[in-house]
Design a binder for these strands. Sequence first.
DNA 1: ATTTATACTGTAATTATATACAGTATACAG
DNA 2: CTGTATACTGTATATAATTACAGTATAAAT
Lengths: 201, 201
Amino acid sequence: MKNLTKRQEEILNLIKTHILDLGFPPTRADIARSLGFKSPNAAEQHLRAIEKKGFIKILSGASRGIILNDSENDQIPVIGLVAAGGPILAEENVEKTIPRSNNLLSNDIDYYLRVKGDSMVNIGIFEEDLIGVSKSANTKVGSVVVARINNEVTVKTLIEMSQNKVVLRPENENYEDIILDPQVEEIAIEGSCVALLRESI
Amino acid sequence: MKNLTKRQEEILNLIKTHILDLGFPPTRADIARSLGFKSPNAAEQHLRAIEKKGFIKILSGASRGIILNDSENDQIPVIGLVAAGGPILAEENVEKTIPRSNNLLSNDIDYYLRVKGDSMVNIGIFEEDLIGVSKSANTKVGSVVVARINNEVTVKTLIEMSQNKVVLRPENENYEDIILDPQVEEIAIEGSCVALLRESI
DNA sequence: ATTTATACTGTAATTATATACAGTATACAG
DNA sequence: CTGTATACTGTATATAATTACAGTATAAAT
């Protein structure tokens, strides 16, 4: 899917806003009016370009017949067991996807990760819970993070992180702190946990 | 809001389905075609009736200008502190509402209740968590329930419930079981907890 | 150097759509 | 028994909306 130009993006956003506000797409004339075009044909041609790039579908003959093609963008993957080695978001790890809902939980969730084991029960993270993970949220000491240690993915609290020492703490007195030397072990912080979903109590 | 007739409901559902399928409402002709009317005016008059009953709004002059008036139905209230005495869902208790999202969590959530206190930490229910409550889900022994005891709302595990004894258990060793006689105390089970949301970790 | 994409104006025709008006028929309420 | 709601047919028309055609102009790609 090719990139949209600035103007095309503006029009796509206008369509989305119109749908959000009124529940149906705008007409060519609506678009022209909103953006100050003097001809509805300007809108028409933009729509054609946007369709050609795959962002919308135009139903010929139907008034307001603009269908958005961004349903995938609106889905958040739920990651089950992470196959060792590959990236977390690899398709084989995706258990299902759930629609993003702006107001429900923090918006910057990149994926949900299904929790395995009981190493975080003390802070209320239980087996089978879904953790909302943000790749961009800044991880600081004290954050609950998704870490990859030698190709295995785990959820722990980040206690210390320096050039030659990383400490990850399970929140369960039955487990010991994981102390690692990043110069020896392969370790990466994949993201921060920003939300939690439990589908059954 | 008056009740719709069977036929009117059929038309309202058609509109909803059309929007779900294509992203915009049907025309009068679309409706007539779908239901076998020979005149678009049949659809028009049904729409007027449905509007009069408050279920939709018709924008005059706009093609497909049908706005659904069921945004409230699609919002789940989030209940903060429950004022003593009144019903849980009383407006003054509603902190905000969040859009219902079919696939995200169990669909039969009637409201979310913000958890106060630490009486359920052992099963991973923490202060400030949002509990998804279903009024209709059958509550059995072992369920986590929302109970109202003498006008105070609380979340506990239901341990026993008979004609002369109700036992509610906090899931925290610092608290004692609550043992009540329903013939003396006023006690009602408001619903079952079927899901959990945590907005920050 | 020529094509292709972007970004519009301006006009106009065709078709899609809302909507008015005139009926028919049934059922229910006051 | 008269009004009002429901549930349509059938025709017609104004207007809403798509969309074709003919241009102008600029920038990037081949």
